[in-house]
């Protein structure tokens, strides 16, 4: 894995991106704005499942009407995030919060697919009503917590000096 990161780090396009004055601020700013689009809409979908808000909106309306926008935000977020990683791979290689964020995104994705292919299939039975099944509520809470953790670990990536002690002891960067 380390050799892959080092190989990318040495690519001329990675170096060019890293040395550009405007690339990093532009990519990071677009990353934050697209995060607002994606995470903002997903948060209200999750809160609808939990029963915190939008109670009069049929549950099935949200994936149909809001997900295309949320996925657009997610796509832009993935591209800008990928470019940020591409431009400074060795900055992130030994960063605990980077790997924690990646792991959390995978778990959030699994939760989303699990919900979609298991719980959501019975949506017609609870679409209009206010009583959301416990499985759906649970998926909403798990999703809220996971995406909030993704946002938090994403912000924490800037704090290279605040890695957990046990992570530093692994000496991954050496």
């Amino acid at each position: 894995m380390r050799s892959l990161f080092e190989w990318v780090d040495a690519l001329p396009s990675s170096i060019a991106l890293r040395e550009s004055l405007n690339a990093y601020p532009t990519m990071l700013t677009v990353h934050v704005v697209s995060m607002c689009l994606f995470a903002g809409l997903i948060a209200y979908w999750d809160m609808r499942l939990v029963g915190l808000t939008l109670k009069k909106v049929p549950v099935s309306n949200i994936p149909t009407r809001l997900f295309p926008w949320a996925l657009t935000g997610y796509g832009i977020n993935l591209i800008t995030g990928g470019l940020l990683l591409y431009s400074q791979p060795m900055r992130y290689y030994d960063n605990f919060y980077f790997w924690a964020k990646m792991a959390l995104m995978v778990v959030a994705g699994i939760n989303m697919f699990w919900f979609h292919y298991a719980t959501y299939k019975s949506v017609q039975a609870w679409d209009q009503g206010r009583e959301i099944p416990m499985n759906a509520r649970l998926a909403g809470v798990v999703s809220l917590v996971l995406w909030a953790a993704v946002v938090v670990t994403g912000r924490m990536m800037a704090y290279a000096g605040l890695m957990p002690e046990w992570w530093n002891n692994l000496n991954i960067g050496a």
Binding site: G40, L41, I42, L54, N61, V151
Partner: peptide
């Protein structure tokens, strides 16, 4: 940042509805 996401979502859902997108059946 977490508060920003909550704020952005609340604003966006209504703004999208204002421009005729999103939750148009509500």
């Amino acid at each position: 940042l977490v508060a920003l996401v909550a704020f952005a979502g609340a604003v966006l859902v209504v703004d999208m509805r204002l421009i005729g997108r999103g939750l148009i059946k509500t």
